[in-house]
């Protein structure tokens, strides 16, 4: 059995805008191994979010296959994908996207409502993940009563609560600054280390990218094959401006 948790096999994605056809992904192939922390980087409009959507089962490739946790999701219908996502994928959003009328506890509990689970088991699971992200004292707070960093922690707890095979994070620190950004990155890193979670993170930010084990760069719908022996070299290639600042 392969140790790859994600296999993207020669995927293309084309959108139609009236008569115009826009090819966003032009034959992308990618493998992510179990327990890896991969950062997907690239400029705006390069196709990274589209690739993330394909891997998370939010969209279908025009051609090619996407296999996640040993299941070919590229031909599943919408209902099958929704069922599959509940347990296979944990999604962390840039803008948290918590349900504003629900408490932190209820937000985290939401995906579990779709699973056949006793109330007691559900409670245990929710409390465990909220403890894991350090929000055990904020159970009854609504998103509006939490800071940005805390909201993102709730978002991460919600992504983890079903114990998914893959955590997908789309710019998870994009709406945070300074210390809060570091805290979220620390948390993701600890989760990856402590729970051996596979994390795929899309980011523009070199600080966030630096925390990943592996960088994958996408440009104009193609994954770039770069000869970098170390992560530092890859970072330098991906964020030349950051390198310049680092040398100052």
């Amino acid at each position: 059995m392969s140790d790859a948790i994600v296999t993207v096999d020669n995927c293309t994605k084309t959108y139609s805008r009236g008569a115009e056809r826009v090819e966003v992904l032009k034959g992308v192939s990618l493998q992510i191994l179990r327990g890896e922390f991969v950062a997907l980087i690239g400029p705006s409009g390069s196709g990274k979010t589209t690739l993330l959507n394909l891997i998370a089962g939010l969209d279908q490739p025009t051609t090619g296959r996407v296999i996640v946790a040993e299941r070919d999701i590229s031909r599943m219908d919408e209902s099958q994908l929704a069922r599959w996502r509940t347990t296979a994928i944990g999604f962390v959003f840039q803008f948290y996207h918590l349900i504003p009328v629900l408490t932190a506890y209820e937000n985290v509990e939401l995906p579990l409502l779709l699973l056949n689970m006793t109330a007691k088991r559900r409670r245990e699971q929710v409390l465990t993940v909220l403890h894991l992200v350090g929000l055990q004292h904020r159970l009854t707070h609504r998103p509006g009563q939490l800071s940005g960093g805390e909201q993102q922690r709730v978002g991460i707890a919600r992504a983890l609560v079903t114990d998914p095979a893959l955590v997908v994070a789309d710019e998870p620190t994009g709406d945070l600054d300074g210390r809060k950004k570091e805290e979220i990155l620390d948390l993701l890193e600890n989760l990856q280390r402590g729970l051996n979670k596979t994390i795929l993170m899309v980011t523009h930010d070199h600080v966030a990218a630096a925390r990943a084990h592996r960088l994958t760069r996408i440009s104009d719908g193609l994954l770039l094959e770069e000869r970098a022996d170390t992560k530092e070299e890859a970072l330098a290639l991906a964020f030349p401006d950051a390198k310049i600042r680092g040398n100052d």
């Binding site: 998370a56 939010l58 919408e78 209902s79 929704a82 069922r83 996502r85 509940t86 347990t87 999604f91 959003f93 996207h97 349900i99 939401l110 995906p111 779709l114 919600r158």
Partner: peptide, 16 residues
């Protein structure tokens, strides 16, 4: 609409 989309990401089916 965003909230509906989030619910779908979390696994809610169109019927839900």
């Amino acid at each position: 609409r965003v909230e509906m989309a989030v619910l779908k990401v979390l696994g809610f089916q169109p019927l839900h």
